[in-house]
């Protein structure tokens, strides 16, 4: 019974990692930038979610508003921060991104206060008993459900639509794609919009599970999501999903069984280093 509970916990956590890390993979796949500030957009999503829910009382409206608003902010981040740095060595963009992330944590703290915000009337608090003694919170079901819906929508978008084909072509070979008349700039904007919107959903969901948003809620996901996309083999979408779920489950079990030796975050990186030494290209990365 304990195993099953730990496993489900791991999958829920893994779904959240997946939503965050997927955006990071999209950015990396297209621009080769390690986008640490992605986690700031995740936090922003959480704040918008809580504020909109508290003022309008509608949770679904909050999700939509958070996605659109954060998506637009993501596009602005690309335009203002990354575009001018594309021709520089990659660590420049990485440090810029870390600086941006620290700055935004400070801005959240100064604007919204250091103690964070909560839902006044938290939605979806009940739980359902699946079978004897085994319960799932509605919130947890929602997390898994939304993750599945979002990821399927993304898979459909990239496989079946013209936009998706343009996007994949740009990832594979930007110059060739441009020669075929694809507007690379638009692809990049769209990429940042989708990536940031996914982070925003994750932010709203984490805010729901913890019933709290605070300025520092992005700091753990930011670095862990980097570990995940590297683990998955940078830029590989399938690898990212596998790595997210695997990490969620490993953390759930690991904190119980080796928690006295390593804390939760160190565990993730121990796993990462171990895998990278055996498979330097990541779990599903191409050599």
């Amino acid at each position: 019974m304990l195993y099953l509970e730990l496993f489900i916990q791991g999958i829920v956590q893994g779904s959240i990692y997946g939503l965050i890390a997927l955006g990071l993979t999209l950015v990396y796949g297209l621009l080769r930038i390690l986008h640490v500030a992605h986690a700031a957009l995740f936090t922003l999503g959480g704040y918008i979610g809580v504020i909109v829910t508290n003022t309008t009382g509608s949770f679904s409206l909050a999700i939509v508003v958070a996605m659109v608003a954060v998506g637009l902010v993501g596009m602005a981040v690309y335009k203002l921060a990354y575009e001018p740095l594309l021709h520089r060595p990659p660590y420049i963009a990485l440090i810029a991104s870390i600086a941006l992330f620290i700055a935004s944590e400070e801005i959240f703290r100064i604007v919204f206060g250091p103690f964070g915000l909560s839902y006044i009337d938290p939605p979806l608090q009940g739980q359902i008993e699946l079978f004897a003694g085994f319960r799932l919170k509605y919130g947890e079901i929602l997390v898994m459900g939304i993750a599945i819906v979002m990821l399927s929508a993304l898979a459909w978008l990239s496989a079946k639509t013209r936009t998706g084909i343009a996007w994949r072509a740009t990832v594979t070979d930007p110059e060739m794609a441009a020669a075929f008349g694809i507007n690379i700039q638009n692809v990049r904007y769209l990429n940042f919009f989708i990536a940031s919107a996914l982070a925003a959903v994750a932010g709203v969901l984490v805010a729901l599970l913890n019933n709290l948003v605070e300025p520092t809620m992005g700091s753990v996901p930011s670095y862990k999501a980097l570990a995940i996309i590297v683990l998955g083999g940078l830029g590989s979408i399938r690898g990212t999903l596998v790595a997210s779920l695997a990490l969620g489950v490993i953390e759930a079990f690991g904190t119980i069984y080796v928690g006295h030796l390593l804390d939760r975050d160190a565990l993730a990186f121990a796993f990462l280093i171990l895998i990278l030494m055996v498979r330097p290209q990541g779990l599903l990365g191409a050599k």
Binding site: Y28, L94, V230, L261, D263
Partner: peptide
Amino acid sequence: VRHDFLAITTMGVGFLFVGIVRK
């Protein structure tokens, strides 16, 4: 591992150090 992979691996080493010392 090289480049971005190395950056993340060394970052992991940093977290590992803190995580081990803490315990």
